[in-house]
Structures are given as C-alpha cells and as structure tokens.
Design a protein around this nucleic acid. Structure first.
Lengths: 85, 85, 85, 85
DNA sequence: GTGGTCTAGACCACC
DNA sequence: GTGGTCTAGACCACT
C-alpha cells in the first residue's frame, strides 16, 4: 500500500494531504527552520505517489510561504518569524 | 432504453427516483459514509438520463442532507449519526 | 511540425516561449483586458506540446500577474493598470 | 578503455584534448551555431573521463568564447560571426 | 542525487 | 468544453 497517512478517497487532494503532513513536521519542530525537507524522490517513495503530485505539494508549500526552493540544492523550511505574508 | 429502475411514466420526477435509488444504496451500506458517490457521468450512463437530471437528483440529495458536495472534489455520503439538520 | 514560433532547441524553456507569445498578444491588444485567453486544450493544439507544458506557461503568466485563472471558467487577462506588484 | 581520440599520456591536458575535439566539431559544422552541445553525461561516456574533466573542457570552451552556457538549459555553440570577443 | 522541464496519457467536477 | 488532479515515465544541468 501507499502511506497510511494518505487517503486517496478523501475530498482533500492528495497533494494537499502531503503538504499538511510536511506542515505538521515543520510546526512540531521535526523539520526545523533552514533545514532541508526530504527530496522529491524520497517523498515519492514515502507517500507512494507520482512525482508530479509531490511537486504540487511542494509548490503549494512554497506559495503558502512555508518553504523556499533553491534549484539544484533542495527545498528549505522558511523562517516565518519575521515579515510573513 | 433507460435503466429498469427508472419509470419515465411515473408521476414521481425522474430526479426523485434517481435520488431514491441512491438513498437506498446509502441505507443498505452499498455507499458507505464518507465515500464519494458515483460521478455525474457514470450516473448519466447508469440511468440513461440527461446530465441535468442527474444534477437535479444530486442537488436534492444535498438539500435533504444525505450527501455533501466538496467543490472540485465530488459529492460524499454524509455522516448523519450526529444530529445536525 | 509543432508551431513555428516554438524552438525546442532554444535555451529558453518551451513553456516560457509560449508565455512570451501570450504576453505579446496581451501587449499588442490582441488579447484585451478581461478577455479569456485560449483554453489549455487549444494551446496544446496550437503549440503542439503537452498539456503540462501549457499549464506551466499559464502558471508562469499567473505568477507574473498577467492573467488570473478562474476554475472551471477559464484564464483571463488581468487589468494591471492599478496596483501592480 | 577510453576514447581513441584521447591520449592520456600526452602533455596536453585531457580537458584540452576534449575541448579540441569539440572545437573541431564546431568548425566542421557537425555542431552548428546555436545548437546545444552534447550533455555532460554523454561527453563523459564518449570520452571515458570523469565528470570534472568534462566540466573543465566546457569551462575552457566558454572562456575561449566558443560556447555560452545558459543556466538550467545547457551549453550552446556561440555565433562568432559578429566580432565581440 | 537535487530540482527543472517535458511527454502522453487518464478521470473528474463544474459550467 | 473548462481547469484540477493524478499517473508513470523520460532527459537534463548543476552540485
């Protein structure tokens, strides 16, 4: 099976569910500020979804200001303590 | 021809007959709580009716509290065990 | 062949080239403010690319503030005369 | 073994030998102006050298003005007909 | 081994 | 017939 935390029957899109899991990891401190989040490839593995779905999740996190992506380097947890949107 | 369960000669509107079939599926457990009901397209196929008729049936189910519709995601069987209207 | 205006050998990504064509249409007045731009499907046809590539182009236009997308309705040329980024 | 055109015993550095082969391809028209040169990976394959060596060769070509590199897109044969250095 | 781009398909809700 | 989501692959530059 895929990941237990993902419900493909849910009205919430899978990419949003993945984003929510990552946000929870950020807010719990499992993913501290300036730490790199897992790579797209490993998120594909972990959640058992297509890469595009993972990219949608990461794009959503980026648009919401939770992370920033540095091409070729990774995606990092943003420091939101100052100047949030 | 259409589906055997639909009687186009009946005084009961077709959309109500379709709604009744779906309600029966819900109450029998064929459609469990929080499960998405079949897509509009498949209901059109199954009952041999126009899209608008299916939409009327679903709107009726929604107004009666049997289902709830989540924008962009589908229509889901509501949990009526807790007694909000 | 695809569209003459797209060069798949160019260092500029195809989705950016498509965005540039649409921006040119906006700036020349071919696509006036509040007009809907062509649908994703027709852009796929016109440029001979995958839908994902068209979506990347439209997302880029959206991020740059040239258009706004209304789900299920289309993507519209934004009025940038006031309050641009 | 490596490629026949590379002589690891030569006093000429390998990266220079690789650069020379690519320059020959450019001047013979095998690699036309504005065409992307082969990817790093394929040059590694073709010449049987380390990645870093290929990168050195490409950097040399760039510094000598034979090619220009566009971030994220590749390295392209420059048009030298117009005489900027 | 990272993200960027691209292909070629699919099903869906909603209009 | 519109955009939203998803799959399952591919090649690439750059670190």
């Amino acid at each position: 099976m895929a990941a237990p935390e993902i419900d493909h029957e849910s009205p919430t899109p899978v990419y949003r569910q993945i984003a929510a899991v990552i946000i929870a990891d950020i807010e719990s401190g499992t993913l501290p500020v300036n730490r790199r989040i897992p790579s797209e490839a490993s998120l594909v593995q972990r959640f058992g979804v297509a890469r595009e779905t993972v990219r949608n999740a990461v794009r959503f996190l980026r648009e919401e200001g939770h992370v920033c992506t540095v091409p070729q380097r990774g995606t990092y947890v943003r420091d939101r303590s100052k100047g949030e949107d």
